[in-house]
Design a protein around this nucleic acid. Sequence first.
RNA 1: GCGAAAGUGGCGGAAUGGUAGACGCGCUAGACUUAGGAUCUAGUCCCGACAUCGGGGUGGGGGUUCGAAUCCCCCCUUUCGCACCA
Length: 824
Amino acid sequence: MPSYDHKTIEAKWQSRWEKRRAVEIDLSSSQNKYYMLMMFPYPSGDRLHVGHGRNYILGDALYRFLRMRGKRPLNPMGWDSFGLPAENAAIARSVHPRDWTLNNISVMKEQFKRWGILYDWSKEVTSCQPDYYRWNQWLFLRMYEKGLAYKKRAPVNWCPSCQTVLANEQVVEGRCERCRTEVIQKDLEQWFWKITDYADRLLAGLDDLDGWPERVKTMQRNWIGRSEGAELDFRIPSIEETLTVFTTRPDTVHGATFMVLAPEHPWVERLLGNGERDQEILAWIERVRNTPRLEREGEGVVKEGRDTGAVAVNPATGEEIPIWLANYVLPDYGTGSIMAVPAHDARDLAFARQEGLAVRLVYHPEGDEIDADSLEEPILDRGEIRNAAPFDGLSAGAETVGRFIAWAEEQGFGRARVTYRLRDWLISRQRYWGTPIPVVYCDKCGIVTVPEDQLPVELPYDVEFTGKQGNPLSRSQEFVTAACPNCGGEARRETDTMDTFVDSSWYFLRYLSAKDDSQMFSAATAESWMPIDQYIGGIEHAILHLLYARFVTRVLHDFGMVDVEEPFTNLFNQGMITRYAEASGRVEKMSKSRGNTVSPDQLIEDMGADTERVYTLFLGPPEDEVEWNDDAVYGAHRFLNRIVRLQERLSETPPTGTDDDELDRTVHRTVERVTRDLEKFKFNTAIAALMELMNALSKAVEDRSTSRLVCDQAFDTLLKLLHPMAPHLTEEFWERRGHPDSLLDVDWPDFDPEKLVSETVNLAVQVDGRLRDTIVVPSKADEPLVRSLALASDKVSRNLDGRSISRMIFVPGRLVNFVTGKSA
RNA sequence: GCGAAAGUGGCGGAAUGGUAGACGCGCUAGACUUAGGAUCUAGUCCCGACAUCGGGGUGGGGGUUCGAAUCCCCCCUUUCGCACCA
């Protein structure tokens, strides 16, 4: 007999689940609520491969498990459907982004269905539809009102290939996160969201996220990059200004022998005056500004600088020190300028040596005299202060830093300050396929936001996709021309659209009110259903999406719209699936571009979705990266086929049996194992346990020494426990065995702890920690009995070899260990 | 360079202080068969020609412990994150 008829069975159950809308949930009650969420996908034109399947299969198995355990899980799905590929498809294939996207969505939906994956489609959310993105616009208006959205001219990241600006989070190692093209800097006027206002709260909130992987929290902490220190003021007599710098080491201010400004610093031209070298310096600045980020900030980049000729006054010593410009000072961190303390900072020391600038020690190592001119390594955290009364004798540390800050405050040239590495979120994009920013520009009134009752500002369908420079929106006269909402005069519409990460920063709230066209979401429903109990998605969003979503949730919290501050209580990052790629000769992430994908369509055709599901979950721990093995898939298929054959032979079992207890015990033990494993997402070991149960039941049927009743019960339990992994097959056999309800509505089995214990146990017997024998003892046997039974073993006595026993370790149910007296 | 995680048979992996290698893939031998991507049975960490006996074994070295894949220290390798952030 070949394989079972998976095609008929799977089609039958998929259509049944769909018809009875088995997963639709009424949000008006939040009793036993469990909000689970898979990161919503981008509907790319490529069909999903089995690597994508891991994420969705995992989620579906979790859904079914939770439901059988009495939870009411909300399991929605939607589409992160704005984005560049749609626009690129339009250019390459003359298909409108909207049509292309909507078609992709229907293809993906069909793929989900064929995997047996159930979502509550009544709450479907599609971010490229006006009924969704109008609330992006609404949110923008609220943020603008509160000063959280603002426009400024700034040096920004520009991806020449995507033809748009990018947020800092979307630049990875100097390259575009999407297309890997090297990013360049441009000065542009752009819209930002003020995430920096939330830096401290976003950082502090991480401490309470116990359900998040440590590494994700670490990445977010590093990204936010809090650093404590002080700002200090340095007077610049020539231009009558005070230059404020940020430093974490105000205690080294006496050693500041020069200042360094970023070449972009706004005062540069004033500082230069009219010197002869100025033309050369300006040209140099231009060159630095145009250097790609990667070359400017990467490892081993050569430090370059120029002397402005101007001087500043060190507030601690009263000395005049030169002001330099250098490429190692970044324009957008701190104040874009530093006090350079070469004796106590590696970068400043390298620069001072290169340019022949003075080095002065503040901290002197105890004992040996060090000559500042021959210092090779900066002194970072040792030594004691000299020649800086009244601080002489202090050693480096937080306390000393505090005393310096207090002193600077007293003297009026400094104050405590905390700085973050996090920058504001640049949300403008020069692309068509995104949410239009609801703003118009009026010659008379300036920036005017579109009134709420005029939302949504809809994307015009009828635009030209030429692939030429510039956003197609800006060439649409119909779109650009607008009446000023303020004065009614002629105005121009903003043609930039929003970063698609805006869409994904709050979609989980929209699921709760997907059809509500009167508000962004219902505060009451959000109160009862938020936070999300379990969020599942890839690690690639560790910073990007997860940071933005935390930010926007806090903003909405501050607007009084949602009570929680953290949207995701538990976060699970599934690992990716890899496979050997011919092209590279290596095992790599499964992807279309690497040519190492496996299509679920063919696999499902041949062996069924249940086989793919079981195999995918069996591959390894879901958080790990695992390698797809084409041959091993048959193992999962074989397992399911054995269950089918087993079912056919159940009727051969006798009415009574002598081994009933043994099988019954295995069943209870399996329930315990599978339940515990699924609670921890350990689907791989849960399936292994089910294979063991199947093997045991198979043997019981074969031996005919176990009763029909117990075998039947074992089989039913196997079906229930396997249902989350192989839903179609289990539903089919559950029905064939005469059970009226769908397994979705059947309770998860319980186990009886008393039935886990057998009459006897195998006990390992060790001598000096080495295994010498295993013996069978009554499970309730006490120490003296075990001792005598163990000593009765030939192997044990042979290995004791007459030596005296100085100690016996007894671990009930596991082992005994005889420790012999050391004769030596 | 800094930080984190990981390293177990031919392969994916199991075991988080107590019988290392569960479960599966692959492989070997046999059975059965209108032959299928069959199925069933047995075996499968290494060495001692065989073994129910013995030794070794979880990247390497050391330590703690009656007992270590598991805990601690040093080293090696791989992967990931950060990397002129003042």
